[in-house]
Design a binder for these strands. Structure first.
Lengths: 97, 97
DNA sequence: TGAACATATGAAGATATATTCATGTAAAGT
DNA sequence: ACTTTACATGAATATATCTTCATATGTTCA
């Protein structure tokens, strides 16, 4: 495994995107089904503006993707990779006794 | 998969620990072999104090572990889980075209 | 076209995080 | 006991990040 500077910054950006409780909840919510921004905001009880900012971060690192439907934007997980990763880390966290 | 508040904070702490270039380099260096603080500091060209602070963060989330040998502290990865996780995320990052 | 709805974005303030500096602690050798 | 070596830690400053507020953009519908 080689770590170029580019790889390092991509990987840290990815981890950084995952290192916020709000964004983790977003990802968890999206693991069930795609949702619009408004639906997410209501479901997570978070401000729309804040949510949009966070979604942008998740999108930048390709953790989520969007499609348009009328005036709505439907967000979903970019791939199952994301979910797999998350469950792994959760089990690692739970290994603490 | 259920996300209790405790799980969320443990997982975000773990991701947070991984979301720094310096700490990523530390983990990468330790994937070869255990190293003392001085060895790490020289190898990564980083200040000893800064390194100690970062090692503490990594230790808090159980990514690395330590054993003492004389006046040295030998740090190593806590388990291969860590390395597996890292390689997965690297390949995810590299999926960008 | 104008109004309402859905989402994005820039700026500002609050908070968190990282690095450095100075110093503390602990083990080993003399 | 004193000095040196190895590492840890607290405080301070610098930087990054998050949230909120205000506003902009884009879409639909009357």
């Amino acid at each position: 495994m080689t770590l170029s500077n580019q790889t390092i910054s991509e990987v840290t950006d990815l981890f950084k995107a995952l290192s916020d409780p709000g964004r983790l909840k977003i990802i968890y919510a999206l693991s069930d089904s795609e949702m619009s921004v408004t639906e997410l905001a209501e479901s997570l009880d978070i401000e729309q503006s804040s949510l949009s900012h966070q979604l942008k971060i998740l999108k930048n690192v390709r953790l989520v993707s969007v499609r348009r439907e009328g005036r709505k934007r439907l967000y979903s997980l970019a791939d199952e990779h994301v979910y797999t990763l998350l469950t792994q880390v959760i089990s690692h966290a739970n290994e603490k006794r």
